[in-house]
Amino acid sequence: MQKDQLFTRRRLLLAGAGAAVVGAAGTAGVLMPGAGTEAAGPAPPAAGGLAAGRPLEPAAYRLRPLTGYGSPRSVPRRTRVRSAPLLRVSGRGRTMVLTFDDGPDPRYTPDILDTLAAYDVRAMFFVCGEMASYHKSLLARMSDEGHVVGNHTWSHPLLTTLSRSGIRSEMERTSDVIEDGYGERPQWFRAPYGAWNRAAFRLGAELGMEPLAWTVDTLDWTRPGTRAIVDRVKDGAAPGVVVLSHDAGGERSQSVRALREYLPGLLDSGYRVTVPRRPYT
Rank of each mutant, 00 (worst) to 15 (best):
K3Y: 04
K3L: 12
D4A: 13
D4C: 11
T8A: 09
L12H: 15
G16N: 05
A17V: 13
A19E: 07
A20P: 10
V21C: 11
V21W: 12
V22E: 15
A25W: 15
T27F: 15
T27S: 15
A28G: 15
P33S: 14
G34H: 06
G34M: 08
A39H: 12
A40T: 15
G41F: 10
G41M: 09
P45N: 09
G49H: 03
A51E: 14
R54A: 03
P55N: 08
R64C: 11
G68L: 02
R77V: 00
T79F: 03
R82Y: 10
A84G: 00
L87I: 11
L87D: 13
L98K: 01
D102K: 11
P104M: 02
P104D: 05
P104W: 01
D105Y: 06
D105A: 09
A117V: 05
Y119A: 06
Y119F: 12
V121E: 04
V121L: 02
R122G: 08
C128H: 00
A132C: 09
S133P: 04
S133W: 02
Y134V: 01
L138G: 01
A140H: 02
H147W: 07
V148P: 02
V148T: 13
V149R: 11
T153L: 06
S163E: 07
I167H: 05
I167G: 02
S169P: 00
E172L: 10
R173D: 02
S175A: 14
I178T: 04
G181F: 07
Y182S: 08
F189K: 01
F189M: 07
P192C: 03
W196V: 03
R198I: 04
A199F: 09
A200V: 09
E206Q: 07
G208H: 08
E210L: 11
P211Q: 03
A213N: 07
V216W: 11
T218M: 03
W221R: 03
G225F: 01
R227S: 14
A228Y: 03
I229P: 00
K234F: 11
A237G: 05
A238T: 15
A238C: 05
P239R: 11
L244N: 13
G249F: 08
G250E: 05
R252D: 04
V256T: 06
V256S: 09
R260I: 03
L266C: 03
D268E: 14
Y280F: 13
T281H: 05
